[in-house]
């Protein structure tokens, strides 16, 4: 169990690297995520929309960032999760999610830790930059 008193600002949380995003995964996410925008499924539609080709749903790397947190602490301790989508993910991209402790605070009896999180592609480019807050004991 991760204890509030053991956490230091600047500490890294365990990162995760996901298998390469496949077209199959985008099709599964289109179904389960209920997002059928053709820019995630159809090369021609993506190009017609002015994109270089099919792009991943932004919610896919954010889903990976959610997993980063739930692998670190039980999900119930995750109080918030947010990200800006600063770069696009494409089929074939290998996404690594990482996090660093940005702050510790006690609020209304809760011991809260703020984590800066990021999803990067295999070139080290930031695709998503965000924040999460988790409650520890």
């Amino acid at each position: 169990m991760i204890l509030f008193e053991d956490i230091k600002v600047g500490d890294a949380i365990p990162s995760i690297t996901k298998p390469a995003i496949s077209h199959l995964q985008l099709a599964l996410y289109a179904g389960a995520g209920a997002d059928h925008n053709p820019i995630h499924l159809d090369e021609e539609a993506a190009k017609a929309g002015g994109l270089p080709g099919i792009i991943a749903h932004g919610m896919l790397p954010l889903g990976f960032l959610g997993q980063l947190l739930t692998l670190w602490v039980p999900q119930r301790q995750v109080r918030s999760l947010s990200a800006r989508f600063v770069g696009m993910a494409f089929p074939g991209d290998v996404i690594t999610c990482s996090g660093k402790i940005a702050g510790k605070r006690e609020e209304a009896g809760d011991k809260l830790v703020d984590v800066e999180i990021a999803a990067q592609n295999q070139k080290g480019e930031n695709l998503q930059l965000g924040k999460a807050t988790v409650a520890l004991t």
Binding site: A48, G49, G50, I55
Partner: peptide, 11 residues
């Protein structure tokens, strides 16, 4: 919607 992209999301 081909010209629309998700830019930011929080929970």
């Amino acid at each position: 919607k081909r010209r629309a992209m998700h830019g930011e999301q929080s929970f």
